[in-house]
Write a protein that binds this DNA or RNA. Sequence first.
DNA 1: TGGCGATAGTTGCCTTTGTCAACTACAGAA
DNA 2: TTCTGTAGTTGACAAAGGCAACTATCGCCA
Lengths: 144, 144
Amino acid sequence: MNNEAITQIRAFDRFYTRIFHLADKYHLKTNLTLLEARILLEIGEHHRDTASLLIQELTVDKGYLSRVLKRLVEQDLLRQTPDETDKRAKRLSLTPTGQEQLALLNQRADDQVATLFAGLSAAETQHLLAAMQYVEDHVHLPQD
Amino acid sequence: MNNEAITQIRAFDRFYTRIFHLADKYHLKTNLTLLEARILLEIGEHHRDTASLLIQELTVDKGYLSRVLKRLVEQDLLRQTPDETDKRAKRLSLTPTGQEQLALLNQRADDQVATLFAGLSAAETQHLLAAMQYVEDHVHLPQD
DNA sequence: TGGCGATAGTTGCCTTTGTCAACTACAGAA
DNA sequence: TTCTGTAGTTGACAAAGGCAACTATCGCCA
């Protein structure tokens, strides 16, 4: 890969990081931090229901995560129920309140995205999705 | 924009955020934090040579930035020279040591990108750049 | 089966990062 | 020349996160 290409990719990276840094405010006006919001999302939408799964997905320290989860439990957004088959683990699930919060977060995040890409025609939207897909397909995931 | 599209875009966002969260480690093995690295980059490459410009670009608190800049000066990576035409402002520039560090950072960041997109043919690389450009061109920048 | 290294999660301790408000100094316009 | 706004600094504080030690349990295998 030549230097010119690398320069352009780095420019895209800066651009995209900035955009989504601005957009990653969907948790505001809730009482949640960005990490807490992402946790609710991962549990509620992607069924990652143990701390270890979250640690992998969110690349966060387990000690820190433990505390954040505790906070979510105290706020009655999260439940930790003992895992019957593995007594070291705890299964995480959202309380009704947690589900409400998640719905709200999703609403906000959707709105953000809709604003960022407002006014595209159907054809442009398709093209955009294809472009994103292309990027995703051509990144070499670093192995963990 | 329909729900399906929004969902896919949010998936891309999560993906890309994660990738570049992993990739944003180019400052490691230097003594610099990510913010410090980005500051050197903005000053050295993009000629943003006052604190206010950096505040805008990096969306960082001015009090905090002030301290970080002070630290960079102490490390002899940065110089602050009085602005003759505006005596409130200070012009920022890299010391020779700072320029060396910047070169090192650029090297590391380039390597990261090259690794992430390793093995693409020239045609694929062109396609990738076009895809990124398309995304960039179709985002509605939120006005500050 | 019982002993042992690995894994899940918690806790204490500490550092770094970031926020907020008050403050000084200067600019630019009325 | 006074008033409002901007550039940057400082103090006090809160939030975020890293690190290591610890408990409990698991799963393997001699």
